[in-house]
Protein backbone atom coordinates (compact mmCIF):
# COMPACT_ATOMS: atom_id res chain seq x y z
CA UNK A 1 0.00 0.00 0.00
CA UNK A 2 2.65 2.50 1.09
CA UNK A 3 4.80 1.43 -1.85
CA UNK A 4 1.89 2.10 -4.18
CA UNK A 5 1.32 5.57 -2.74
CA UNK A 6 5.04 6.26 -3.11
CA UNK A 7 5.05 5.03 -6.72
CA UNK A 8 1.97 7.08 -7.53
CA UNK A 9 3.61 10.25 -6.23
CA UNK A 10 7.00 9.38 -7.73
CA UNK A 11 5.47 8.85 -11.17
CA UNK A 12 4.02 12.34 -11.10
CA UNK A 13 6.72 14.44 -9.45
CA UNK A 14 9.81 12.20 -9.51
CA UNK A 15 10.79 12.51 -5.87
CA UNK A 16 13.39 9.73 -5.81
CA UNK A 17 16.28 11.90 -7.08
CA UNK A 18 15.55 14.48 -4.37
CA UNK A 19 16.15 12.20 -1.43
CA UNK A 20 18.76 10.07 -3.23
CA UNK A 21 20.74 13.27 -3.57
CA UNK A 22 20.85 13.52 0.23
CA UNK A 23 21.32 9.79 0.76
CA UNK A 24 23.90 8.97 -1.89
CA UNK A 25 27.26 9.81 -0.48
CA UNK A 26 29.95 7.77 1.07
CA UNK A 27 31.24 7.86 4.65
CA UNK A 28 34.95 7.05 4.81
CA UNK A 29 36.35 4.69 7.40
CA UNK A 30 38.26 7.31 9.42
CA UNK A 31 35.09 9.12 10.54
CA UNK A 32 33.18 5.96 11.40
CA UNK A 33 33.23 5.21 15.15
CA UNK A 34 32.13 1.63 14.41
CA UNK A 35 35.55 0.92 12.89
CA UNK A 36 37.73 3.23 14.89
CA UNK A 37 36.35 4.35 18.23
CA UNK A 38 38.42 7.56 18.39
CA UNK A 39 36.31 8.76 15.45
CA UNK A 40 33.57 9.63 17.97
CA UNK A 41 34.93 13.19 17.78
CA UNK A 42 33.23 13.42 14.38
CA UNK A 43 29.84 13.00 16.08
CA UNK A 44 29.92 16.41 17.79
CA UNK A 45 28.68 18.30 14.73
CA UNK A 46 25.77 15.94 14.21
CA UNK A 47 24.89 16.06 17.91
CA UNK A 48 24.97 19.87 17.82
CA UNK A 49 22.42 19.76 15.02
CA UNK A 50 20.37 17.26 17.03
CA UNK A 51 20.24 19.65 19.99
CA UNK A 52 19.30 22.49 17.62
CA UNK A 53 16.34 20.34 16.51
CA UNK A 54 15.42 19.82 20.18
CA UNK A 55 15.64 23.58 20.74
CA UNK A 56 13.42 24.37 17.76
CA UNK A 57 10.78 21.84 18.75
CA UNK A 58 10.70 22.66 22.48
CA UNK A 59 10.77 26.39 21.68
CA UNK A 60 7.82 26.10 19.32
CA UNK A 61 5.79 24.34 21.97
CA UNK A 62 6.83 26.80 24.71
CA UNK A 63 5.31 29.69 22.75
CA UNK A 64 1.91 28.01 23.16
CA UNK A 65 1.95 29.25 26.75
CA UNK A 66 4.49 32.07 26.85
CA UNK A 67 3.57 35.76 26.54
CA UNK A 68 6.28 38.38 26.01
CA UNK A 69 4.80 40.99 28.33
CA UNK A 70 6.47 42.18 31.51
CA UNK A 71 3.38 41.69 33.65
CA UNK A 72 2.61 38.21 32.40
CA UNK A 73 5.84 36.72 31.08
CA UNK A 74 7.01 35.40 34.43
CA UNK A 75 3.51 34.24 35.35
CA UNK A 76 3.14 32.35 32.09
CA UNK A 77 6.49 30.62 32.58
CA UNK A 78 5.63 29.80 36.19
CA UNK A 79 2.27 28.48 35.09
CA UNK A 80 3.61 26.33 32.30
CA UNK A 81 6.17 24.69 34.50
CA UNK A 82 4.07 24.21 37.60
CA UNK A 83 0.54 23.65 36.28
CA UNK A 84 0.91 22.24 32.79
CA UNK A 85 1.58 18.50 32.50
CA UNK A 86 5.14 17.96 31.24
CA UNK A 87 5.62 21.73 31.06
CA UNK A 88 8.56 21.39 33.43
CA UNK A 89 10.16 18.89 31.05
CA UNK A 90 9.64 20.97 27.91
CA UNK A 91 11.06 24.06 29.57
CA UNK A 92 13.86 21.90 30.95
CA UNK A 93 14.67 20.65 27.45
CA UNK A 94 14.88 24.21 26.16
CA UNK A 95 16.84 25.45 29.19
CA UNK A 96 19.39 22.64 29.33
CA UNK A 97 19.49 22.35 25.55
CA UNK A 98 20.70 25.95 25.42
CA UNK A 99 23.69 24.96 27.53
CA UNK A 100 24.32 21.61 25.88
CA UNK A 101 24.27 23.15 22.40
CA UNK A 102 27.06 25.54 23.41
CA UNK A 103 29.10 22.66 24.82
CA UNK A 104 28.60 20.56 21.68
CA UNK A 105 29.37 23.51 19.44
CA UNK A 106 32.57 24.13 21.37
CA UNK A 107 33.65 20.47 21.10
CA UNK A 108 32.86 20.45 17.37
CA UNK A 109 34.83 23.67 16.87
CA UNK A 110 37.80 22.29 18.79
CA UNK A 111 37.74 19.04 16.77
CA UNK A 112 37.81 20.99 13.51
CA UNK A 113 40.48 23.32 14.83
CA UNK A 114 42.92 20.78 16.19
CA UNK A 115 42.60 18.63 13.08
CA UNK A 116 43.30 21.65 10.90
CA UNK A 117 40.17 20.72 8.95
CA UNK A 118 39.48 24.37 8.12
CA UNK A 119 42.46 24.64 5.79
CA UNK A 120 42.12 25.17 2.07
CA UNK A 121 39.60 24.59 0.53
CA UNK A 122 37.33 24.64 3.60
CA UNK A 123 37.97 28.22 4.84
CA UNK A 124 34.48 29.44 3.98
CA UNK A 125 32.76 26.69 5.89
CA UNK A 126 34.80 27.52 8.99
CA UNK A 127 33.68 31.15 8.75
CA UNK A 128 30.05 30.07 8.39
CA UNK A 129 30.56 27.83 11.41
CA UNK A 130 31.94 30.65 13.56
CA UNK A 131 29.00 32.83 12.47
CA UNK A 132 26.67 30.04 13.64
CA UNK A 133 28.52 30.14 16.97
CA UNK A 134 27.89 33.91 17.25
CA UNK A 135 24.21 33.45 16.40
CA UNK A 136 23.99 30.79 19.11
CA UNK A 137 25.50 33.15 21.69
CA UNK A 138 22.98 35.78 20.56
CA UNK A 139 20.17 33.29 21.01
CA UNK A 140 21.49 32.51 24.49
CA UNK A 141 21.68 36.18 25.45
CA UNK A 142 18.20 37.08 24.17
CA UNK A 143 16.60 33.88 25.48
CA UNK A 144 17.97 34.46 28.96
CA UNK A 145 15.73 37.52 29.43
CA UNK A 146 12.46 35.92 28.35
CA UNK A 147 11.37 34.29 31.67
CA UNK A 148 11.58 37.81 33.16
CA UNK A 149 12.88 36.65 36.51
CA UNK A 150 15.46 38.51 38.55
CA UNK A 151 18.52 36.82 37.08
CA UNK A 152 17.21 37.44 33.58
CA UNK A 153 16.50 41.09 34.24
CA UNK A 154 19.76 41.96 35.94
CA UNK A 155 21.98 39.95 33.60
CA UNK A 156 20.41 41.75 30.64
CA UNK A 157 20.93 45.07 32.36
CA UNK A 158 24.63 44.27 32.76
CA UNK A 159 24.83 43.14 29.12
CA UNK A 160 23.22 46.35 27.93
CA UNK A 161 25.50 48.46 30.11
CA UNK A 162 28.46 46.73 28.47
CA UNK A 163 27.00 47.58 25.04
CA UNK A 164 26.68 51.19 26.17
CA UNK A 165 30.43 51.39 26.79
CA UNK A 166 31.19 50.94 23.10
CA UNK A 167 32.66 54.20 21.80
CA UNK A 168 30.65 56.56 19.54
CA UNK A 169 27.65 54.28 18.94
CA UNK A 170 27.31 52.84 22.45
CA UNK A 171 24.23 54.78 23.55
CA UNK A 172 22.46 54.22 20.24
CA UNK A 173 23.39 50.53 20.28
CA UNK A 174 21.97 50.10 23.74
CA UNK A 175 18.76 51.94 22.84
CA UNK A 176 18.40 49.86 19.70
CA UNK A 177 18.70 46.64 21.71
CA UNK A 178 16.65 47.73 24.71
CA UNK A 179 13.97 49.72 22.91
CA UNK A 180 14.36 52.58 25.37
CA UNK A 181 17.22 54.86 26.30
CA UNK A 182 17.12 54.22 30.03
CA UNK A 183 14.56 51.54 30.87
CA UNK A 184 14.95 47.80 30.57
CA UNK A 185 11.26 47.03 30.39
CA UNK A 186 8.25 46.22 28.27
CA UNK A 187 9.85 47.23 25.00
CA UNK A 188 13.07 45.37 25.78
CA UNK A 189 11.18 42.15 26.36
CA UNK A 190 9.21 42.34 23.09
CA UNK A 191 12.38 43.20 21.19
CA UNK A 192 14.35 40.33 22.68
CA UNK A 193 11.42 38.01 22.02
CA UNK A 194 11.29 39.01 18.36
CA UNK A 195 15.05 38.63 17.99
CA UNK A 196 15.08 35.30 19.81
CA UNK A 197 12.13 33.74 18.03
CA UNK A 198 12.27 35.18 14.52
CA UNK A 199 15.39 37.10 13.55
CA UNK A 200 18.17 34.90 14.92
CA UNK A 201 16.50 31.56 14.03
CA UNK A 202 16.08 32.83 10.46
CA UNK A 203 19.78 33.66 10.34
CA UNK A 204 20.57 30.31 11.96
CA UNK A 205 18.59 28.34 9.37
CA UNK A 206 20.26 30.15 6.49
CA UNK A 207 23.73 29.58 7.94
CA UNK A 208 23.02 25.93 8.74
CA UNK A 209 21.83 25.36 5.18
CA UNK A 210 25.04 26.87 3.80
CA UNK A 211 27.08 24.85 6.31
CA UNK A 212 25.51 21.54 5.23
CA UNK A 213 25.55 22.30 1.50
CA UNK A 214 29.24 23.16 1.72
CA UNK A 215 29.97 19.90 3.55
CA UNK A 216 28.19 17.92 0.85
CA UNK A 217 29.97 19.77 -1.95
CA UNK A 218 33.44 19.52 -0.45
CA UNK A 219 33.14 16.20 1.33
CA UNK A 220 34.49 15.51 4.79
CA UNK A 221 38.16 16.30 5.39
CA UNK A 222 40.58 13.40 5.01
CA UNK A 223 42.40 11.63 7.83
CA UNK A 224 45.37 13.40 9.39
Amino acid sequence: MLQKVYDWIDERIDITPIWRDIADHEVPEHVNPAHNFSAFVYCFGGLTFFVVVIQILSGMFLTMYYVPDIENAWKSVYYLQSEVAHGQIVRGMHHWGASVVIVMLLLHTLRVFFQGAYKKPRELNWIVGVLIFFVMLGLGFTGYLLPWDNKAYFATQVGLEIAEQVPFIGTELKTLLAGDASIVGAQTLTRFFAIHVFFLPAALFALLAVHFILIRRQGISGPL
Partner: peptide, 12 residues
Protein backbone atom coordinates in the same frame (compact mmCIF):
# COMPACT_ATOMS: atom_id res chain seq x y z
CA UNK B 1 10.02 51.20 13.08
CA UNK B 2 12.83 49.12 14.56
CA UNK B 3 15.15 52.09 15.10
CA UNK B 4 12.43 54.41 16.36
CA UNK B 5 13.60 54.27 20.01
CA UNK B 6 17.04 55.52 18.96
CA UNK B 7 15.66 58.53 17.11
CA UNK B 8 12.97 59.36 19.64
CA UNK B 9 13.83 62.34 21.78
CA UNK B 10 14.51 61.19 25.27
CA UNK B 11 11.97 62.64 27.65
CA UNK B 12 14.01 61.77 30.70
Amino acid sequence: MAIDPVLKKSDS
